[in-house]
């Protein structure tokens, strides 16, 4: 850590070393401890600005109503239409269609037997009324 880098970091992050980049924090603190008068003056200026900003840091927030509104819009579980149940129903439907199709394919084709109709038309009680 040299004077130039120390000043750069001080101007960017202020005098609170917890805000400094993790890797340069310890070196910065050590540099400030072994400071000269002008380093101490720079730190004091940065600290004054930090304190000014901190003076408005914590404002009480009443977020109860807003929280409720946000949570009302949060995703909801739908037990009636649970995703797994939907998948299971869809699988059953597909399986049913396949079974039906397969059974239809395996069933013997109906014979084109017209005997029944011929017999029906030739039945003696047709046309013999009276």
């Amino acid at each position: 850590m040299n004077r130039e880098r120390f000043q750069q970091l001080l101007e960017a992050y202020g005098a609170d070393f917890s805000r400094w980049p993790e890797g340069e924090r310890a070196a910065g603190e050590a540099f400030a401890r072994w400071n000269t008068a002008d380093v101490a003056a720079s730190v004091a200026v940065a600290r004054a600005l930090d304190a000014t900003l901190d003076s408005v840091k914590s404002e009480p927030l009443d977020l109860e109503a807003l929280s409720a509104k946000i949570l009302a819009a949060a995703p909801r579980a739908h037990p009636m239409f649970d995703r797994r149940a939907v998948y299971a129903l869809a699988a059953c439907a597909v399986f049913g269609v396949l079974i039906g199709f397969g059974a239809g394919m395996l069933a013997p084709a109906p014979a084109m037997d017209e005997t029944y109709f011929v017999q029906a038309l030739e039945a003696p009680w047709l046309g013999e009324e009276g």
């Binding site: 101007e11 960017a12 992050y13 940065a46 600005l49």
Partner: peptide, 8 residues
Amino acid sequence: ESLLARGR
């Protein structure tokens, strides 16, 4: 760091 320094 440049944005921070200019802002501060």
